[in-house]
Design a protein around this nucleic acid. Structure first.
Lengths: 228, 228
DNA sequence: TAACATATTGAACATGTGTTCAGCACGGTC
DNA sequence: GACCGTGCTGAACACATGTTCAATATGTTA
């Protein structure tokens, strides 16, 4: 069964909220397939029928979960807009307050569900804005295609999040751990990132070669040697 | 039902191979949840019982699929070792011969299943070797932690593959399309990558700031502003 | 008090699932 | 011809699933 809430003390959330939160936690910890109506119901301490009463169907439940997670993240981002541009896309998500929501996102990210897609679009729009601001203030280099660059950076960030199990196995860093930001093991992951984003990967000579190759677009199946 | 093989002509594969291939195609096109014993059986033109006869269980089938995909990719990589170091991790995968296997991988990548984990480990070992070779030949800049850099680059590549639906929506590039290499739309995706890997993202001043910040490791929750 | 809407239950139903199994067809070996 | 192993079938089984629904509690309004 999916793990129930931690405490035995009173829970002032409505049953509807408990069901939603239980579903998020269950998806985060055990995946979509394991998240059944009955397991969610027992995790929330209610009967299976009530899940249907409040959300209509299991798909309705998941849509509600998507929207709740998206809304929570959006609320945080708009509230934290004053503390400077958060160029770190996932640094904002690596907040302990989100609890299992990051792991939930990691599970749902590869399905192109509307609520998640909208959230991603928003994150990218934000990132594009922050990147432009970084260019203005001289922190970041300009790009030929600012939007595409924002998309690529976002895909890399979110992609690494989806593959967090592998990252944990390979580097010992768990991006879904709510306390990962205060843990210093994450530097194993951050250092090469700063290396690449700072100095780049290609040497100057090779970079100009690659630039020329991609400029001569079209069929470049044999020419493209860059990492993709 | 999952799409059956294209042709009506004779199929000289054994029933066991047809079942395995049908399962791979079904997972690639419709996902794990939709890949049931009966659907796979009808796609392969056999009875449900034969699936169990050959693979013992559905989990056994998926393990066999994992291993077959991994073996196919490994075979390709060892056969293509002569045509120069394939720094492009996924460029090798973007070969039309793999058919639905890339899409299959994209579906399975976020589960830490043994066969896939081993494949990833191999891909990273290869990448690390190719990166080292690139450093030797003066194409790539050296790294403080070559293995971690290889891991990060691999996670970015594979992560983007997992998120291919979003990439398609955002940039119009489908990484799971077997013919994506010959299509020029992929340059929309490759150009910002070459930008970042070539010139970097940070300006020199900011790069040294970031380097200093991450050097003073520990609690850097407020300091880290780099993309992650 | 009566009426009503809402929250909640738990048994039931239909369906689809993975898996089992007795049996058949066939091809080779004694 | 008898035997046996293997590929293969299709009906059956036990089970879990999403969903429905009549019934009950509870609180709110008239």
């Amino acid at each position: 069964m999916c793990s129930a809430r931690s405490s035995s003390s009173s829970d002032d959330r409505t049953a509807k909220a408990r069901i939603r939160d239980g579903a998020i936690e269950c998806v985060a910890n055990h995946g979509l397939a394991e998240t059944t109506a009955r397991k969610v119901a027992t995790a929330a301490g209610v009967s299976p029928g009530l899940v249907m009463h409040h959300f209509g169907s299991m798909e309705g439940l998941l849509v509600a979960c998507d929207e709740h997670v998206a809304a929570t993240i959006r609320d945080y981002k708009s509230a934290a807009v004053d503390q400077g541009p958060g160029l770190d896309l996932l640094g904002a998500l690596r907040q302990s307050q989100f609890g299992p929501m990051v792991a939930y996102l990691a599970r749902r990210l590869h399905d192109d569900t509307p609520a998640v897609a909208n959230l991603i679009d928003d994150l990218i729009a934000d990132a594009e804005g922050y990147l432009a601001l970084g260019v203005e203030t001289g922190m970041l280099k300009p790009s030929d295609d600012p939007r595409a660059r924002a998309v690529v950076l976002a895909m890399w960030s979110l992609g690494a999040l989806v593959l967090h199990r592998h990252l944990e196995r390979l580097l010992g860093v768990d991006l879904t751990d709510p306390n990962v930001s205060v843990d210093s093991t994450i530097t194993t992951y951050l250092k090469p990132i700063y290396e690449i984003l700072g100095e780049g990967l290609f040497t100057e000579e090779f970079a100009s070669q690659a630039r020329a190759a991609v400029a001569a677009a079209g069929q470049d199946a044999d020419i493209t040697k860059g990492q993709s």
